[in-house]
Write a protein that binds this DNA or RNA. Structure first.
Length: 886
RNA sequence: GGAGGCAUAGCUCAGCUGGUAGAGCACAUGCUCCACACGCAUGGGGUCACAGGUUCGAGCCCUGUUGUCUCCACCA
């Protein structure tokens, strides 16, 4: 610890030192009362090669707040850390790097060599994200750090795949799948994002070829509307609505597919919308999900015209080898030249894009592995409906349920190299399909040794779905799994409800028989200060580590915590707002310096028996604070919790109590007790603040006298609970009367521009003569009172200087007293008259409003008693004040 | 096309069970008094989007309208 506490808090040094101190002390490991159930959170695993962004900082700060709170509250607490291999994202990164530095592609290297390079990459950067999480104070049990591709987790993946296969819940099928031609792999529905795009609707003539229709009346061609002309190369029919009279006689005839020599039939299907486009749809079974269904219904041939890298294949005739963009241009040019292109209309429509690279996806018929979802979804739906899994805020349940109830089978195969290889082998001798738990050496059917493993890997989310139990040792029944599963809370942003949260829930239920957590605490996304999404390409990303460096990690965390409201959706992060929280940290730092300096070298500590009114006030406020903060944390109202601690420390403790304590310290009769209360209050405030601002609180706490501290570290200190014996409501209210008086006099002096140093004599008229008399020092010190005379309120005679008697007198009416100050030379009499008139008026109207309210029988009869009596009290008070004013 | 969120001070946002509208920043005035100018004191600033309804009482509950954001669906 530093010898002398400097004037400003220096975060960087304190952060590194205290984090190391916690790590060495093993404080992040589950400890606490073995009788209590454990409290577990699994971290949403960041990409192993990723960098900490503001979203991570936010999400993990919230988790750390919960974890630190529960740890202090005595639960054996585990925050399970880990990283994700993030298949496509990582592979793309490494490929880009290889291209840039070595000018080689993954194909140049070959599969095994490439994967080795990715592992190298992982070794190199895998610790970076962990270090960054540690920088922001994450108190994970790092010894348990897991990785989705480590041995244990890979075994869990294998077990799940094989058992789903054995249950018939995994199958291989050919169907339309979204392929990202840039990433060159299939995607699941959840990985496709739809973007509103300005496109065009092309009207193309398809000549009718059936002989009997060579009708001069004008059935020489049929017009088809399409947004994607290049796919016409794969058309195997055109369709019209069965009841569309315009085309009725064409049904069953054939048309010539322009640019090709193929004749295709005209069919009728009610999938066609008569009012849209030309009322005729080209049917391209292999490149459109709806067309695929139509083709199945009508037994149309399927014709695949594209490769997974987005080029036209040999089925595209002379267009083969062109990219889809080139093909579109070429087809349009040829249609135009051939006189087939009737017209082109602008057309807005949604285009599916890859969630990773945001290039348009290509729906394409292909062979993929699917997880059959119907059976898995059912118990995952009831788990939420029956309340075994709760969403906070609740409204996210609807999103979850809607998706789960309409869930489609999950395409889990990916045509990339980095990931869990699909554990399926085919015997090249007898064709047997083998899906084993251990890698096979020979075909179990024919004994043949020519086994070929499926080249694909699994969707990254396949392993993420198992995260809450695979990290704890499943499928083995390890002590960790036994003790910490199911976990408690999952904290994440709403944008991965489908990708991750939903899949964890059904996976947990299916494979462990238990919901993986009882609460899903969802938050929104952080946007920039203009409300725009943060992104690398827009360059508007905020680097959390830069913020932490500039303002201190605790300041960043406090700001993030106040953003964590349950109401709204996304939040704006305004970097300059960190300043306020940095200032707060500095305030706390200096208040602590004051407390420590006033303690001197006393190390003894007991809560004193005899307390002053201000002592009782702050202690009572503190009890309320403990109660409030605990409740807010339990309800996931992290913003309210942090705001209340901050406001207590700043507004109550620093601005009032410390100022009052300065007086008490000068008085030998109260000095000792004051030291104790200063210390007591600070210590509890530090505990309440610790989950939000762990570094500065630990730093200060370590400087407190041993007598107040319980244990060796604040991180492991007991979470406070309110003590009833320390609630002094009456005394606290009395203190408020004194404070009100100070505030009122300060305000008036300020308003009248009385020089701050100029003392004034006070005449205090109050029924609380004893109270005001014994605390006159407060007025001298905090409100520049000089001579003070205290008298009971003058009811009838004029034995005391009557307020009306002097025009140079300023009268200040507060809740407990009337203060009269002779400020002759300073008073602008006319202005003072006007001011009094105004005050009278406002009190008068207030009284009127209240009287109407209280004379309304509806109110007095129906409103709760406490509300009515409070209003009565207020009225009485106002009337009293009015009396004093007039 | 369907669903949901949001609308409160100049700006960014809180607001608990319906019971006297709050904070920070910004602004204004005044303070170097022994914790802190990353500070202290004081102040100005609001038709709680609009229109109805329920209620003794609505920022909060209900209905509708407008604006705005998001998710789901996909009509080529």
């Amino acid at each position: 610890m530093p010898e002398e506490l400097g004037k400003t808090y220096q975060p960087n040094d304190a952060e590194a030192r205290n984090y190391a101190f916690w790590m060495e002390g093993g404080y992040f490991k589950p400890a606490g009362d073995p009788q209590k159930p454990p409290y577990t959170i699994v971290i949403p695993p960041p990409n192993v090669t990723g960098q900490l962004h503001l979203g991570h900082a936010f999400d993990n700060t919230l988790q750390d707040v919960l974890i630190r709170y529960k740890r202090m509250d005595g639960f054996p607490t585990l925050w399970m850390p880990g990283t994700d291999h993030a298949g496509i994202a990582t592979q793309i990164r490494v490929e880009a790097e290889l291209r840039k530095t070595e000018h080689v592609s993954r194909h140049d290297l070959g599969r095994d060599a490439f994967i080795r390079r990715v592992w190298d990459w992982k070794e190199k950067y895998g610790s970076r994200i962990v270090e960054q999480l540690q920088k922001i104070g994450a108190s994970c049990d790092w010894d348990r750090l897991r990785f989705t591709m480590d041995e244990g987790l890979s075994r869990a993946v294998r077990e799940v795949f094989v058992s789903l296969y054995e249950k018939g819940l995994i199958y291989r099928g050919n169907r339309i799948t979204n392929i990202c031609v840039s990433c060159q792999t299939a995607l699941s529905e959840a990985e496709v994002e739809y973007e509103d795009t300005e496109g065009a609707l092309y009207y193309v003539k398809y000549p009718v070829t059936s002989p009997e229709s060579a009708d001069p009346a004008g059935d020489a061609y049929i017009v088809v509307a399409t947004t994607r002309p290049e796919t016409m190369l794969g058309d195997t029919a055109v369709a019209v609505h069965p009841e569309d009279e315009r085309f009725a006689k064409l049904v069953g005839k054939t048309v010539l597919l322009p640019l090709t020599d193929r004749e295709i039939p005209v069919i009728a299907d009610d999938y066609v919308e008569r009012d849209f486009g030309a009322g005729v749809v080209k049917i391209t079974p292999c490149h459109d999900p709806n067309d695929y269904e139509v083709a199945k219904r009508h037994n149309l041939p399927e014709l695949l015209i594209m490769t997974t890298d987005g080029k036209i294949n040999q089925n595209g005739g002379k267009y083969a080898g062109l990219t889809r963009e080139e093909a579109r241009k070429a087809v349009l040019r040829d249609l135009e030249e051939g006189g087939y292109l009737l017209k082109t209309d602008p057309h807005r429509h949604n285009v599916g894009t890859c969630a990773r690279c945001h290039k348009p996806v290509e729906p394409m018929a292909s062979d993929q592995w699917f997880v059959s979802m119907k059976k898995l979804a059912a118990p995952a739906i009831s788990a939420v409906k029956d309340g075994r899994v709760k969403f906070v805020p609740e409204r996210f349940e609807k999103l979850y349920l809607h998706w789960m109830e309409n869930v489609r089978d999950w395409c889990v195969s990916r045509q990339i190299w980095w990931g869990h290889r699909i554990p399926v082998w085919t015997c090249e001798d007898c064709g047997e399909i083998i899906v084993p738990r251990e890698d096979p050496v020979a075909c179990p059917k024919c004994g043949g040794k020519n086994l070929a493993q499926d080249p694909d890997v699994l969707d990254t989310w396949f392993s993420s779905a198992l995260w809450p139990f695979s990290t704890l040792g499943w499928p083995d029944n390890t002590p960790d799994f036994e003790r910490f599963y199911p976990t408690d809370v999952l904290v994440t942003a709403y944008d991965i409800i489908y990708l991750w949260v939903a899949r964890m829930i059904f996976s947990g239920i299916e494979h462990t028989g238990k919901e993986p957590f009882h609460t899903v605490y969802m938050h929104g996304l952080l946007r920039d200060q203009f409300g725009k999404k943060m992104s690398k390409s827009a360059g508007n990303g905020v680097d959390p580590l830069e913020m932490a460096e500039q303002y201190g990690t605790d300041a960043l965390r406090l700001y993030l915590a106040t953003l964590a409201t349950l109401q709204g959706g996304d939040m704006r992060f305004v970097p300059a707002h960190c300043e306020h929280f940095r200032n707060f940290c500095n305030k706390l730092w200096n208040a602590s310096r004051f407390v420590l300096a006033s303690l001197g070298d006393t190390d003894e500590w007991t809560l004193p028996d005899s307390l002053t009114l201000p002592d009782m006030w702050i202690v009572t406020k503190l009890q309320t604070l403990i109660y409030d903060v605990t409740g807010h944390l339990d309800r996931y109202e992290l913003n309210l919790a942090s705001q209340k601690v901050i406001s207590f420390v700043w507004d109550d403790f620093c601005d009032w109590y410390i100022e009052l304590a300065k007086l008490q310290l000068r008085n030998p009769a109260t000095a000792d007790a004051t030291r104790q209360i200063l210390c007591y209050t600070l210590e509890i405030a530090l505990r309440l603040l610790h989950p939000f601002a762990p570094f500065i609180t630990e730093e200060i706490w370590q400087c407190l006298p041993g007598g107040v501290r319980e244990g060796a570290a604040l991180i492991a200190a007991r979470w406070p609970s309110p003590e009833h014996r320390l609630r002094f409501e009456h005394e606290a209210a009395q203190t408020e009367l004194l404070m009100d008086t100070v505030r009122a006099v300060r305000a008036r002096r300020n308003e009248m521009k009385v020089p701050p140093g100029k003392k004034a004599a006070w005449l205090i008229e109050t029924p609380h003569t004893e109270l005001f008399g014994s605390h006159a020092e407060i007025f001298r010190s905090l409100a520049a009172a000089g001579e003070i005379r205290i008298v009971p309120p003058a009811r009838d005679d004029a034995q005391t200087p009557s307020p009306e008697s002097g025009e140079g007198l300023v009268r200040i009416v507060t809740s407990g007293a009337v203060i009269t100050l002779p400020l002759d030379e300073l008073v602008d009499i006319a202005a003072e008259r006007e001011r009094r008139q105004k005050e009278r008026l406002s009190v008068e109207t207030e009284i009127k409003v209240l009287e109407i309210k209280l004379n309304n029988p509806g109110f007095t009869e129906k409103a709760p008693e406490r509300v009515v009596s409070r209003e009565r009290e207020r009225l009485a008070e106002l009337k009293e004040r009015m009396e004093r004013l007039s």
